[in-house]
């Protein structure tokens, strides 16, 4: 990677920019993201993806942890209902998501910071569009209040040391 590109990357995910964690299922959405890449579709570089075998393996704890660690948004993308490689794995995702979203909302985290989308391996364009619109949405909300809090705590620790 050239110096220029490295700099561009650091800036996009930098202090002032939003950072989004995306959980992508191995069989559909990761392949969809790959298709978006090989098709050279443009989408914001604020997304950091984590490949999981199935969205059903994503414990709600992971999402809580992501927000705790200072992510501004979390995207979960998996196969369409009925197309799951493990037949019913995404049923669990769909159900858990309902509860997780309400829990985060009740705690006071903006609803728009969490999103669930179904993206198949053939939907490279949809993936790019999802990332574009989700990044816009999270940018409009600004940095997560938990991240701001965390930054303060880390600074405090360094100051003490």
């Amino acid at each position: 990677m050239t110096e220029e590109k490295k700099e561009g990357r650091a800036e996009a995910g930098g202090e002032d920019d939003v950072r989004i964690l995306a959980f992508l299922c191995n069989w559909c959405s990761y392949a969809g993201a790959d298709l978006a890449g090989v098709s050279r579709l443009q989408y914001p570089p604020n997304v950091l993806d984590v490949r999981v075998m199935c969205t059903g393996t994503i414990s709600p704890y992971f999402v809580v942890k992501a927000f705790q660690e200072g992510m501004d948004g979390v995207l979960i993308a998996g196969c369409h209902i009925g197309d799951c490689h493990y037949l019913k794995g995404n049923y669990m995702t769909a159900k858990r998501f309902q509860v997780l979203r309400e829990a985060l909302k009740f705690m006071g985290l903006e609803e728009g910071r969490l999103r669930l989308e179904w993206v198949s391996a053939a939907e490279g364009e949809k993936y790019a569009e999802v990332v574009r619109s989700f990044t816009e949405q999270v940018k409009a909300l600004g940095p997560s209040p938990l991240r701001r809090k965390r930054a303060r705590a880390v600074k405090g620790e360094k100051g003490a040391a």
Partner: peptide
């Protein structure tokens, strides 16, 4: 899960906000 050091940092009081109580709330659903 509340004793898992990867989710809840040991020895920190009060525990991290909001993960500690959020994890329990999610399990109670």
């Amino acid at each position: 899960a509340l004793e898992n050091p990867q989710l809840v940092e040991p020895g920190v009081v009060p525990p991290e906000f909001p993960s500690f109580h959020l994890i329990r709330a999610l399990d109670m659903a």
